[in-house]
Nucleic acid binder design. Sequence first.
DNA 1: CACCAAACGGAGTCGGACTCACCTTAGGGA
DNA 2: TCCCTAAGGTGAGTCCGACTCCGTTTGGTG
Lengths: 194, 194
Amino acid sequence: MPSPRPLRADARRNREALLEAAREAFLADEDAHVEEIARRAGVAVGTLYRHFDTREALVAEVYRQEVAELCAAPARLLAQHSPDEALRAFLLLLVEHSAVSKGMGEALESIMATDSPVFDDARTEMARALDHLLATGAAAGLIRDGVSGRVVLRGLGGICSMRANGWQEDAIRIATILYDGLRHEAASTAGSRP
Amino acid sequence: MPSPRPLRADARRNREALLEAAREAFLADEDAHVEEIARRAGVAVGTLYRHFDTREALVAEVYRQEVAELCAAPARLLAQHSPDEALRAFLLLLVEHSAVSKGMGEALESIMATDSPVFDDARTEMARALDHLLATGAAAGLIRDGVSGRVVLRGLGGICSMRANGWQEDAIRIATILYDGLRHEAASTAGSRP
DNA sequence: CACCAAACGGAGTCGGACTCACCTTAGGGA
DNA sequence: TCCCTAAGGTGAGTCCGACTCCGTTTGGTG
């Protein structure tokens, strides 16, 4: 049940090459074609499709790795800052990450917009990481409670799906507004917790 | 310079039919094919392409009309409620509008994500409408100042680009958080105004 | 080193958006 | 009323990208 077969050496190498090529391609050009990615990886399209069912599956895998990296951030930030500072830092980190890799925004967007099982793990992991951050803050009375990581994650989707000019300043402002909204123990409530 | 030629009667009729067919098609099925839209309108694809350069141009026009409708809302709400209540009502109205027409979310997303001149008018109009709302609120001391309609609009993009299950409750919560963040005269600031 | 299942290559299929050469018709003028 | 003509309509065909399929190659095992 764990792994039926260990994957042949050349296959593993090609898989790696494809992921790397895809990452590069997506960073350079948002809608890179499968042929182009395969070429970069030095394989034929058939090989690409042996490893990834569809173009989207490849995209998903690349972004899953990216997201996993981001998921480690909240715990690290909590170790270094107060919970509310950690929250703010995380929001801004996310904006920065989006700036570095334009592809990232699309990833979050997809993660949010689909029910695809491909993204479920990433979503869950990220939500858990954020839950930790929010719960710690709420326990300290610094952040409003009753807000789940999943909800905040969706708010972030809006930040990262923007690619028009001047988006980055706007993203920082939105992150700040969200942060203030979360920190502020609101007079208004939004119904039962999600 | 106003209009070079007045457009023949049958052409105008077909144009209307296409827009109507497209609206229906997009409401029913997010990625309706051009053939399908043409069929619904009772014309051939060639006719569709005589009126709209690309599929996207057609989408843009349909959504431009939708957006124009939403743009009228802030002024109306201000006439009936206090500025902060009007703001909250508008945010929730937007969520509701998204619920009714799934296509709407994609529209806002596109409006935000592209620099396409197609959407410039809609964006500007909407931003102006929101500016009015925000400025009125700020003047009354009910809403933080220094926030432009454009910025809030981008925050809304996040609300409306969500289509996963349970999105609507989450959208309402995010709208509320944004609202609280905007109303709250923040201790923190987000740099100079955008 | 012989074998064979796993992996690879790449021409071919398929499904969309879009085009273009020809046909149809609204509507203005004689 | 009936041409005449340019605006408008048609739909088979092109193009282009994701994806498939089967003949060929190769890692790794006895």
